[in-house]
């Protein structure tokens, strides 16, 4: 194995990378990589592959797993809860790529113009991001509490006699959890857009204004196109985050009432660790992975594209 494969096109590129390691010390990068790469393969990549195998077994967590072919998947596609979870995941994804993105971008635009108190406003919006999702779930769970929580106390105070049950209402539960998740997410999106706006040359906006564009036109035709790389990353990260969401669902409803707020991540946990159907749980995990994989590839394409072009 050599440390310096000869890639002809590479020679034309300016030496942004370090000079090649001298062939005598080709092993140096491998020494630096050995432990981190071994750990990552053992605890992340290996387990990912192993989950595919487990999904083809009837493992119950106690006895040795036995291969049963695709039976877990057949059962899964006939499971009513699976389709509820898929529908709820779709609600999460759609909510995450709309509300936090629009709100986060709007806030970034306003805060970028030096509104008085900008620093405090920023802190207010990203403070939810540093709070543990478990804590958010507990606090929002308390606000939603039908008997004494904030929402129903206020509603009763203004004369509503029959306020909703929020998390106890199967039609509302998922939306209630999503609201808490959006509360957490907006500040993060805002931060990414604020960073993106740093890269937008203000003179471009001034020039368009001089040419007679109103602020909306300047945004629509100058800023928005310039921010499109940030938007792609924001949307993809939002989708992946929404598919990962587990803590809030687990703490607030555990997927209830009657599975109405279940998502794949939560369903997987319950089947595998509460019902000890670990093979079945692995199959759910594989489906969740496959849904995420497409978006992960878009993210990789967007962030690593320049590295892979040669």
């Amino acid at each position: 194995m050599t440390a310096t494969p000869v890639i002809p096109a590479e020679k034309a590129r300016p030496a942004r990378r370090a000079p090649r390691a001298r062939s005598k010390s080709w092993w140096v990068p491998y020494v630096f990589l050995a432990i981190p790469l071994a750990m990552f393969l053992m605890w992340v990549i290996g387990p990912m592959i192993y989950s595919f195998y487990l999904s083809l077994t009837n493992w119950d967590g106690v006895s040795a797993p036995k291969l049963i072919g695709l039976r877990n998947y057949v059962r899964l596609f006939n499971d009513r809860v699976f389709w509820i979870a898929i529908a709820n995941n779709a609600k999460w994804v759609v909510s995450f790529i709309t509300a936090p993105v629009i709100l986060g971008l709007a806030l970034a635009m306003v805060l970028n113009r030096n509104i008085p108190g900008a620093k405090g406003i920023k802190s207010a919006f990203y403070s939810p991001y540093i709070i543990a999702p478990v804590v958010i779930g507990l606090i929002w769970g308390w606000m939603y509490q039908p008997a004494n929580g904030l929402f129903n106390s206020v509603l009763r105070a203004v004369g509503v006699t029959d306020p909703p049950g929020w998390l106890a209402d199967p039609r509302l539960a998922t939306w209630c959890i999503i609201a808490a998740a959006i509360w957490r997410q907006v500040g993060y999106v805002m931060t990414l857009y604020l960073a993106g706006l740093q890269g937008v040359d203000p003179s471009l906006i001034d020039a368009s204004m001089v040419d007679g564009a109103n602020p909306w036109q300047a945004f629509r035709h100058v800023i928005w196109p310039l921010l499109s790389p940030v938007t792609v990353v924001v949307v993809v990260i939002s989708i992946i985050d929404s598919l990962r969401s587990f803590d809030l669902v687990f703490v607030m409803t555990r997927g209830g009432p009657a599975n109405s707020s279940s998502v794949l991540a939560n369903m997987m946990y319950i089947e595998a660790f509460n019902n000890y159907k670990m093979g079945y749980g692995a199959a759910i995990a594989v489906v969740l992975f496959l849904i995420s994989a497409g978006f992960i590839f878009i993210y990789l394409w967007q962030t690593l594209r320049s590295e892979l072009e040669y």
Partner: peptide, 9 residues
């Protein structure tokens, strides 16, 4: 990666 794909292994 979604954590669920790693949980059981």
């Amino acid at each position: 990666l979604p954590f669920q794909i790693l949980l059981l292994p």
